[in-house]
Design a protein around this nucleic acid. Structure first.
Length: 289
DNA sequence: CACCAGGCAAGCC
DNA sequence: GGCTTGCATGGT
């Protein structure tokens, strides 16, 4: 990979295993929007960025080399060798096909608090509406940003959200999730849930801590572990992954109670990445209904 | 009208 | 522990 630096953009040449459509549309994030020209604009870490891809070249528009080195590089997980991981994971036929299909997926290193709130909102909800609710959350409670003559909003801080009344969240139209959002924000703002500490904890322990929050069960906790806390062994199980896993690995029978052991044995330390390949494959092909 | 959505909590047994 | 039901809201 070669990097070219211009005044207000970075060009990454000859990038492998990075497809911006797959990465932004695979369901891990909710704040990147496809533009008419095929580029994506999104907000992360209080910064706005436009990403343009032409085959194996990726342009990060609206940033500097310093910001790339200190933020975006880690956000896009650029130091991880996805090619090597794919070879290691492609043990069975099904996963091999899924990897082939979504080989450009990367796991974004998202902010833990944003990930926690976003996946609380995701419960019993669909992706377009999750995006809408998060959009309204940012517009109403997040700091305003200007980027290329357009207005964007940061994800709100725990403190701002914790200061809201449940009634104030009505504008989100998030329904029963209002109280869950508030509970999470108050725990984080109040210091009883220290998200950064969960990175260094074993995933199983961190999951117990996350599940103390209202509205956080196994599925949401595993998403936060995987997408927000760098626990790549977390394997979130939702309806889609349930369908494809039951279909491909258990002859259509229900997932057994020792499923976590199965996942650990079969997919290992990067089970979460395997999960993303399977999830994207199942969704895009609408298979295993 | 019914049914579903990247589930979870509360109430049963 | 497992199983059932209700849940706010919006889309099909």
């Amino acid at each position: 990979m070669k990097v070219t630096v211009s005044p207000n953009r970075i060009l990454l040449h000859n990038i492998l295993q990075f497809d911006i459509t797959q990465t932004f549309e695979c369901g891990q994030c909710f704040r990147w929007t496809r533009q008419r020209d095929g580029s994506y604009v999104g907000v992360a870490g209080g910064r706005v960025l436009r990403v343009i891809q032409k085959e194996n070249d990726i342009c990060l528009d609206g940033t500097t080399n310093e910001e790339y080195e200190t933020f975006w590089k880690r956000y896009f997980d650029m130091d991880r060798d996805y090619g090597k991981l794919q070879v290691e994971l492609a043990g069975d036929d099904m996963l091999g096909r899924a990897i082939n299909y979504g080989s450009g997926i990367r796991i974004l290193a998202q902010e833990p608090f944003e990930t926690l709130i976003s996946f609380i909102i995701s419960a019993n909800n669909n992706i377009p509406r999750i995006r809408q609710i998060i959009g309204r959350l940012c517009e109403n409670f997040g700091e305003r940003l200007t980027f290329q003559n357009e207005t964007f909003y940061r994800f709100p801080t725990p403190e701002t959200l914790a200061g809201a009344k449940q009634n104030d969240l009505g504008v989100l139209r998030a329904g029963f999730r209002d109280s869950y959002i508030l509970d999470a924000a108050r725990r984080v703002a109040g210091g009883s849930l220290r998200l950064e500490e969960l990175r260094r904890m074993p995933a199983s322990e961190a999951r117990v801590r996350l599940m103390e929050v209202k509205g956080v069960g196994k599925k949401v906790a595993d998403c936060v572990l995987l997408f927000g806390l760098g626990h790549y062994e977390a394997f979130p199980v939702d309806v889609w992954i349930r369908r494809i896993v039951e279909h491909c690995y258990f002859s259509g029978n229900p997932i057994p109670c020792d499923f976590e052991e199965f996942v650990d044995r079969k997919f290992g330390n990067y089970a979460g990445l395997a999960q993303q390949y399977l999830f994207y494959y199942a969704r895009e092909l609408k298979i295993a209904k």
